[in-house]
């Protein structure tokens, strides 16, 4: 069953001189429930814009973005915020943990915007990810790999239907990267969440049964007249 469906989605930004720079043009993209898909893309190819549109952070210029049957394009920003908090987990390349909060607090705070804070669940998640003795450590007191796992716990804490991962192994060494990737995939599978992962690392991409070249998916035309 389809969880995510994009049709004729475009996104452009104004450029000096009156024209517009089209950065995204995706005719069709589908992702099934519990499916795990990798997108291969280089830096600046528009893949982060693509993920941000799926996350409801950005609104496309046109097209249709159906998540669980609801079209994000027709929702207000506040409605997209709620949808994001309740249905999506986002793992960033640089993790984007809040420095003033402990590992546990980072996860609990993420829950506050969704179904509500559940410190016990957050604790269990972090323990599952091997951080049982790092619950009260601040991000700067954790290794990069540990920060990555806190970010993963935060992304999974609201029991999302879809996890978006933007270069999640980009800041890790190859061995740790593959280990983290395995963890992400296993945790998503376990929680029943679909995974849409973007990476330019061939070793990462090679582990996915379904891997799409983002350059083929994105048919953006570059600078276009206003």
């Amino acid at each position: 069953m389809t969880l995510l469906s994009l049709r004729d989605v475009t996104k452009s930004y104004p450029v000096p001189g009156g024209g517009r720079q089209e950065v995204l043009r995706v005719a069709q993209f589908d992702l099934g429930e519990r499916e795990q898909v990798a997108l291969a893309g280089t830096s600046g190819s528009g893949k982060t814009t693509f993920l941000n549109i799926i996350a409801g952070i950005l609104k496309p210029d046109g097209g249709q973005v159906l998540l669980g049957g609801r079209d994000l394009v027709g929702l207000t920003e506040a409605q997209r915020d709620v949808l994001r908090a309740e249905n999506l987990g986002y793992v960033f390349q640089t993790f984007h943990l809040l420095g003033a909060y402990s590992a546990l607090e980072n996860v609990v705070l993420g829950m506050a915007f969704g179904p509500g804070p559940d410190p016990q669940l957050a604790r269990v998640l972090l323990e599952r990810l091997g951080l049982g003795n790092r619950l009260h450590h601040r991000p700067h007191q954790l290794s990069v790999g540990q920060q990555q796992r806190v970010a993963l716990a935060r992304a999974l804490a609201n029991r999302p239907k879809l996890v978006l991962a933007d270069e999640p192994t980009g800041n890790l060494d190859p061995e740790s990267g593959l280990e983290a990737l395995g963890l992400i995939r296993a945790m998503c599978a376990e929680s029943g969440a679909a995974l849409l992962l973007v990476s330019h690392d061939p070793k990462v991409l090679a582990t996915f049964e379904r891997c799409q070249d983002f350059a083929e998916l994105n048919q953006a035309r570059g600078e276009v007249p206003a």
Binding site: A55, E77, A78, V82, A85, Y90, L97, L98, A100, F113
Partner: peptide
Amino acid sequence: RREFAILRSLGARRKT
């Protein structure tokens, strides 16, 4: 601003 952006990415509304 980074903190606000992270909170927004987690689902925080602007008015929050």
